[in-house]
C-alpha cells in the first residue's frame, strides 16, 4: 500500500498543478475579485497539500486499517483479465448499441461475459436471452426509454 500511496500522492499533486494551469485563462469578477477560478484554485492547493502529506505518511509505517468488507483493499487481484473484459464490454456497448440495436448488442455482450466468467454455453445462451428481454421490457416498454432498434428497425 505504501508504494501505491506514493503513486496516488503524485497523481493528486499532478492533478493540483494541472488545475492551476487550466485556470490561468479563467476570467475575474469586477474590480479584479476572483471569479470562476477561485474555488478550483483552492481545491488545487488542497490536492497538492494532501498529496504531499500522503506521500510523507507513506514513508512511515502505514497505520491505515483495511476497509471493512473490501477484499480489494487487501488482496492481490487474481482475475485482472476479467476487469479489462468488463471495460471492453462497456466500450463495445457504446459502439454497437446504435448500430446493432439494443436487443442484439445486449444478448451478444451478455453471452460473451457469462461465458468468460465460466458459465456453460447453454446456460449463458438462455440467461442472455432472458436478461435482455427483461431489461428491454422494463426500460423500453414500461419506462419508455428509446433503446436503439438498430438495423432491426427495417
Amino acid at each position: 500500500m505504501e508504494k501505491n500511496d506514493w503513486i496516488a500522492g503524485g497523481i493528486f499533486i499532478a492533478l493540483g498543478i494541472g488545475i492551476f494551469i487550466l485556470t490561468i485563462p479563467f476570467p475575474s469578477l469586477d474590480k479584479g475579485h476572483p471569479g470562476p477560478a477561485l474555488f478550483p484554485n483552492i481545491l488545487a492547493a488542497l490536492f497538492i497539500f494532501f498529496g504531499l502529506l500522503l506521500g510523507l505518511k507513506a514513508k512511515k509505517p502505514s497505520v491505515d486499517k483495511p476497509l471493512e468488507n473490501s477484499t480489494a483493499a487487501a488482496s492481490i487481484p487474481k482475475n485482472i483479465g476479467n476487469a479489462f473484459f468488463i471495460l471492453g464490454i462497456i466500450a463495445a456497448f457504446m459502439v454497437l448499441e446504435s448500430w446493432l440495436g439494443f436487443l442484439l448488442t445486449s444478448f451478444f455482450l451478455l453471452f460473451l461475459l457469462m461465458k468468460k466468467l465460466g458459465t456453460s454455453a447453454w446456460k449463458s445462451l438462455t440467461l442472455s436471452v432472458l436478461v435482455t428481454v427483461f431489461v428491454y421490457f422494463l426500460f423500453y416498454k414500461i419506462l419508455r426509454v428509446p433503446l436503439s432498434p438498430g438495423f432491426l428497425s427495417w
Binding site: E97, M114, V145
Partner: peptide, 24 residues
C-alpha cells in the same frame, strides 16, 4: 452465482446510465 449476477448488474448499469438523457 456471481458469474450470472454480475453480467446482469452490468447491463442494468449501462442501460440505467443511458436512460436518463438517452445518451451514450
Amino acid at each position: 452465482p456471481k458469474k450470472i449476477l454480475m453480467p446482469a448488474i452490468l447491463m442494468f448499469c449501462m442501460v440505467g446510465s443511458f436512460a436518463i438523457n438517452n445518451s451514450l
